[in-house]
Amino acid sequence: MKIISRKKGPLINRDHLTAYLFLAPWLIGILFFTLWPFITSFIMSLQETNLFSTKFVGLDNYRALLSDRRFIKSLKVTIKFVVISVPLKLSFALFIAMLLKDKIKGVNFFRSALYLPSLIGTSVAVAAMWTQLFGPSGLINDILGIFGIQGKSWIANPKTALYVLVILVVWQFGSSMVIFLSGLKNIPVSLYEAAEIDGANKIQSFFYVTLPMLSPIILFNLILQTIGSFQTFTQAYIITKGGPINETLFMVLYIYNKAFTASEMGYASALSWVLLFVILIVTGLIYWTSKYWVYYES
């Protein structure tokens, strides 16, 4: 029911002006701090820039990327990192969420305690801690020592460095877990009861009730974590510094190095656009496949 009917008037009336006044801070922000950098980023990617000069070079930066072996490596390790860490993190989050969905003693304590790593995980303090945990005489090697295994530095080893970061990211499964938990709560109990009457066991009801009902939430978490994972920086910058032999040179780290250490702003902008496209393609693919596995109640 509409109580007041608005008078027909000019295209922009007072109500519209009021609305734009409310929007003003965000509009200014979007234009100056997001849209403008977004456009200049593309222009810069067509330029060769250093500290002293700028010159238009067309697609040269993009062409140079194709023969840049560090870029190829960077792209590879970033994708490898995303492909390994995101599914692991989400499986973990879902597994623990399944254990925590029922009322059990101390459930709030478990939830809080397991959520905590996702809040502090990107801090420098945790990165410093991880450096020591996986260092040559860190906690991990202490534990292995009990079993008589002599471990080396996991961070300096090109074969294991990436996995040190994967474990750090998987450790932060708490925020995905909480989102899964709220999704699990919304699955009607009647569905489980119906499945039980039909003779389904626990495992069957997980695959035929829980997973389909949860699939929209899984998609949401998957896209969120994939985008986030592509942007990993602090951990790689502090713990592995991109090494050893570029095994953890994630895209954002490479962009940072090119732009702010080598002062090749144009090249770094081209890298940024490639990163954006890779993220778009991967999230687009996930979204495209979703019609085959995401179940929406009509």
């Binding site: 929007l23 997001t34 810069m44 962009i255 902008s269 940024s272």
Partner: peptide, 24 residues
């Protein structure tokens, strides 16, 4: 249209704007 812009920026990876924002 503006709401679509808002949703697009929700998905936009901020790291892509690293370099031009620094210049700005």
């Amino acid at each position: 249209f503006l709401f679509t812009v808002l949703m697009a920026t929700l998905m936009l990876p901020q790291q892509v704007l690293l370099v031009p924002r620094y210049v700005l």
